[in-house]
Design a protein around this nucleic acid. Structure first.
Length: 955
RNA sequence: GCGGCCGUGGCGGAAUGGCGAGACGCGCUGGGUUUAGGUCCCAGUGGGCGCAAGCCCGUGAGGGUUCGAAUCCCUCCGGCCGCACCA
């Protein structure tokens, strides 16, 4: 068989494998650190540095489809362009390998999750290597590696052992807080004295400050997954983000992270980040900062609480509309509010309307019945009847602090325990929800903000509440405070000042963000480095005991339990290994018995800080060497908070991973472990690759590859099928793997096609037929350089002609800028244009051929290396300078001439630079806009100034 | 309901500090190479009229600003995304 030099699948495969081996041998993509074990003598660490990252993948057993590497190819191209413009580029890829699928597989098959996970990682590594990604493989990490999660645990302990000092506005070691308590610099909560407290009481007090703490609170319990979930993992309709199972509220003791302490900084620091506005907006919404006031309402003993011992009660409400306090006509508590039981009287007050009682003979019974009704609803059901207002009267009355009026107190599930204080002052005239409730329960309404529309000031005639921040306050005066005549913002200010002066409230800020529920009742996650002593006090393991490795167990399955039974401690998989759980340790005060924490961390933990480990993956003394961290991620010009230069991934992590990682970053920053206060300076969300889904008459997907199109309809064999656009996936039978595309065309074609499909941030369908277009580009490029019969080159050593120079200049000028802006589709178009141009010329000058090869090198690195080599070069294109536009080359053949009449621009003419003045005059006067503007005026003078301005002076 | 984004050929999409719309790719049409199919190569491809040169109309619809609008402003229509009893 004779050797062929035709660029086809076989030759592409040969070239690609050869160069991939070469790069691996040479360590071509290894980026040196400035110091430490990854430093080298190359001097490359002195170059300007760039840190490029992808959201790392979960090593799924299903392997990759062509949608997965989209972002990896993009970052690879960008990183290659940066290398060719003289940067030290750090680009690698690790694996986010803890998580449910491996565990579910383990439950089904009994295979240890580590075994299946590592096998999957191996398969994915092979698939990714085939794409020619220029990763520094020395830096690849996996979150399940004990040498990795040792530091995840270490960070947890840092967080556990710190508190948020509001005065300093940052986290500090918990020891500082203890010192403040001991010295009396800070008063103990509840007016107690630190020295009087028992060990358990002290632990309890500190727990109220720690940034990682265990607490009993209503949590999202998902029986379908057998674990509790964070708010961020529950969808708006009360289901689990993963698996779509219903979620219930249940009271359980769980670990939390005090992310709420960072609400303001997480919000404010968004401003400094180069992120898509959509994601910033989602984070702002999620944090949900709102400014308003706390107002204290008194429920006097005589108004309900008398039956319970005669004490007055104070109920605080949160409102953003303190200006409407005079319009409040009733009060609502969340059904779970802790004061409800205390204020309920034994009997309905005189004159209670039957509609308010729910048909019950006394308030206690009515409340018990209502609570039972709402508690039985899952969040899904609560959502379903979201608009319908239900509730019941408590029998108690609260006093409006502004005017002393008696307000009936209700409980209703439209008031949520988790937001604000779990209690509201209801202003039906100026709040849509209160309006609906007041209508349903026939409660009075009072208008205190003059409507700006035609409706008048009697709410009885309204269809809906009047809500406006740009209106005048009326009818709002009581003893001491008068708001009448003020606009809403001014009235808010005045009311807040009055509340503070009277000591019945204060201006406050409230957040929608809740603390992050951090423990899971699953096996395949990081164990907590926490043990409990005989008194149940939590102790941190010393650093020397890390990593705390996951113990072996026989049964990986999660266990469900009865959330109704408060005494049930959820059985977790780790609790089954008694030898592991019950231990004797010496934590500094001699050997004692301890019980280990048996929850595991959520799968977000490992991804909260992995960018840092990429920097210094082999460091066994520290999370990351400070000098190395400062080098790659420290604050610098235009990036005051530091961070990764470019982070590419899907938009689905907007309020999950991206919020958690920012939070950890700030804690580590506060504690002095890193110099960057933000992990990711620039974020880019790539779109999804979609695919057509073909379904038969029963709605089942049929294999997309077997569907044929006839006369604009689709058939599977003889059966007609429906087509829709959807995700790509095994279950939809439309997955295309990178392996099959590589086998048919090669990795370079796959890379080009994925990038040529359209803008990186837009989702678009995979068109299997269209791939060949990029293959043709490479074939033509190949033929422009290589003689297909001999393997020699066909380039000629002569200067390009003028037309070719122009096309080449356009490409060189445009492609570099396109690549910097991640506009890979237009970059490919410009390269194609130049390549097509010289293909038609039939003679390819050497300079053009070399320019083409270098231009395409980031996009199609294998063929570029091969052609570069065949052009007689012995170095690699990887570190060659990228072609730059020659500023001396002028493309313009015309200049723009401005025609003015009375100083106003009337026309612009494209003319030759050497045009004569008389010629220019006559062209200008012939222009329709000029003729129209002059009308009958006649021309007095035409002045041609310089070659650029024609000034016509009308008579 | 609130907030944000977007409407360009048969398809994916170029061109936005305003000035030759449709780059590049797919598909389609015709031709060439090939025993044939595929691959590959050449030409054409927004619509209309015309043998042609060329002319007219065209960026969801309508209006406006401008010498000049896919691009800026207003109204409407259509689509996508996020949030949703958050007080």
């Amino acid at each position: 068989m004779t050797e062929t030099f035709k660029y086809g699948a076989a030759l592409a495969a040969d070239i690609e494998a050869r160069w991939q081996d070469h790069w691996e041998r040479e360590g071509t993509y290894e980026a040196p650190n400035p110091s430490g074990s990854l430093a080298d003598g190359s001097g490359r660490a002195k170059l300007p540095k760039k840190f490029i990252m992808d959201m790392f993948p979960y090593p799924s057993g299903a392997g990759l489809h062509v949608g997965h590497p989209l972002g990896y190819i993009a970052t690879d191209i960008y990183a290659r362009r940066l290398r060719m413009t003289g940067h030290n580029v750090l680009h690698t890829l690790g694996f986010d390998a803890f998580g449910l699928p491996a565990e579910q597989y383990a439950v089904q098959t009994g295979t240890h999750p580590r075994i299946s996970t590592e096998e999957n990682i191996g398969n994915m590594r092979a698939q990714l290597r085939r794409l020619g990604l220029g990763h520094d493989t020395r830096r690849s990490v996996s979150t399940i590696d004990p040498e990795y999660y040792r530091w995840t645990q270490w960070i947890f302990l840092q967080i556990f052992n710190s508190w948020y000092d509001e005065r300093a506005g940052r986290a500090r070691p918990i020891a500082d807080l203890v010192a403040e308590f001991e010295s009396g610099a800070r008063a103990c909560p509840d007016g107690r004295d630190w020295s009087d407290l028992t060990t358990a009481e002290r632990a309890d007090v500190l727990g109220g400050y720690r940034l990682a703490y265990a607490s009993d609170a209503p949590v999202n319990w998902c029986p379908g997954l057998g674990t509790v979930l964070a708010n961020e993992e529950v969808t708006a309709d009360g289901r689990s983000e993963r698996g779509n199972f219903p979620v219930f509220k249940s009271r359980l003791r769980q670990w939390n992270m005090r992310i709420t302490a960072y609400a303001d900084r997480l919000l404010d620091d968004l401003e400094a980040l180069d992120w898509p506005e959509a994601i910033k907006l989602q984070q702002r919404n999620w944090i949900g900062r709102s400014e308003g006031a706390r107002i204290d309402f008194t429920i006097p003993a005589a108004e309900g609480a008398g039956d319970n011992g005669g004490a007055d009660h104070t109920v605080a409400v949160f409102t953003t509309r303190q200006d409407t306090l005079f319009g409040s006509t009733y009060m609502v508590l969340a059904p779970e509010h802790h004061l409800v039981d205390a204020i309920v009287p034994g009997a309905w007050p005189e004159g209670t309307r039957p509609a308010w009682t729910g048909g019950h003979t006394d308030p206690g019974e009515a409340i018990a019945a209502y609570r039972k009704r709402t508690a039985a609803k899952s969040d899904v059901e609560r959502q379903a009847d979201a608009r319908e207002k239900t509730g019941v009267f408590t029998g108690a009355f609260a006093i409006n602090p502004a005017n002393g009026e008696r307000l009936p107190v209700f409980i209703a599930d439209y008031v949520l325990m988790g937001y604000g204080t779990g209690a509201i002052m209801a202003v039906p005239a100026h709040d849509a929800r209160d309006f609906a409730f007041a209508r349903a329960f026939d409660l009075p309404m009072r208008c205190v903000v003059r409507p700006t529309d035609e409706r008048g000031t009697d709410p009885a005639a309204w269809d809906d509440a009047f809500v406006s921040h740009d209106a005048e306050i009326i009818d709002s005066s009581g003893p001491g405070v008068i708001l009448d005549g003020l606009d809403v913002p001014a009235a808010k200010k005045r009311m807040t000042a009055w509340l503070e002066q009277e000591g019945v409230g204060e201006g406050t800020v409230n957040y929608r963000l809740r603390d992050w529920l951090f423990s899971r009742q699953r096996y395949w996650g990081e164990p907590f480095p926490i043990v409990y002593d005989e008194d149940g006090i939590a102790h941190a393991l010393p650093e020397s005991m890390l990593p705390l490795e996951l113990p072996e167990i026989d049964d990986y399955s999660p266990r469900t339990f009865d959330p109704e039974d408060a005494d049930t401690r959820p059985e977790t998989p780790l609790s089954r290994n008694r030898e592991w759980v019950e231990v004797e340790l010496d934590l500094g005060d001699g050997p004692r018995r301890y019980r280990r924490e048996t929850n595991t961390m959520p799968n977000w933990a490992g991804s909260c800080w992995y960018e840092l480990r990429y920097l210094d993956p082999r460091n066994s003394d520290r999370l990351v060497d400070p000098e190395v961290e400062r080098y790659w991620m420290g604050p610098r010009e235009g990036m005051p908070l530091g961070g990764v230069d470019l982070y590419v991934g899907g938009a689905e992590h907007a309020v999950l991973h991206l919020l958690y990682a920012r939070f950890w970053s700030k804690v580590l920053y506060d504690l002095g472990h890193v110099s960057s206060a933000e992990p990711f300076h620039r974020l880019f969300n790539q779109g999804m690759i979609q695919a057509h889904v073909y379904r038969d008459a029963r709605g089942f997907p049929v294999p997309a590859g077997e569907v044929e199109e006839r006369d604009g309809r689709w058939y599977h064999g003889e059966e007609p099928v429906d087509r829709e656009l959807g995700k790509m996936g095994k279950s939809l039978k439309n997955a295309v793997t990178p392996d099959e595309i590589c086998a048919e065309y090669g990795a370079d074609t796959l890379r080009l096609y994925e990038m040529a499909m359209g803008p990186l941030d837009v989702s678009r369908p995979w068109d299997p037929r269209a791939v060949v277009g990029q293959f043709r580009l490479l074939q033509r490029l190949w033929r422009n350089v290589v003689d297909e019969t001999t393997g020699g080159t066909v380039v000629v050593d002569e200067e390009p002609d003028e037309a070719t120079l122009r096309v080449m200049h356009k490409a060189v000028d445009g492609v570099g800028r396109d690549l910097d802006a991640l506009r890979f589709n237009t970059a490919i178009a410009k390269i194609t244009e130049l390549n097509n141009h010289v293909t038609k010329q039939n003679r390819v000058p050497r300079t053009v051929a070399e320019t083409l090869v270098l231009l395409i090198a980031p996009l199609a690195p294998h063929i570029a290396e091969e052609l570069w080599h065949r052009l007689g070069h012995t170095d690699s294109v990887v570190h060659r300078p990228y072609p730059q536009a020659d500023p001396a080359y002028v493309v313009d053949e015309t200049i723009t001439c401005v025609v003015q009449i009375r100083g106003k621009v009337k026309a612009r003419l494209e003319v030759a630079p050497d045009i004569s003045e008389t010629e220019l005059e006559s062209i200008a006067l012939a222009h329709p806009a000029v003729r129209g503007a002059l009308g009958d005026a006649g021309i007095r003078k035409v002045i041609v100034r310089a070659p650029k301005l024609v000034n016509i002076v009308p008579a």
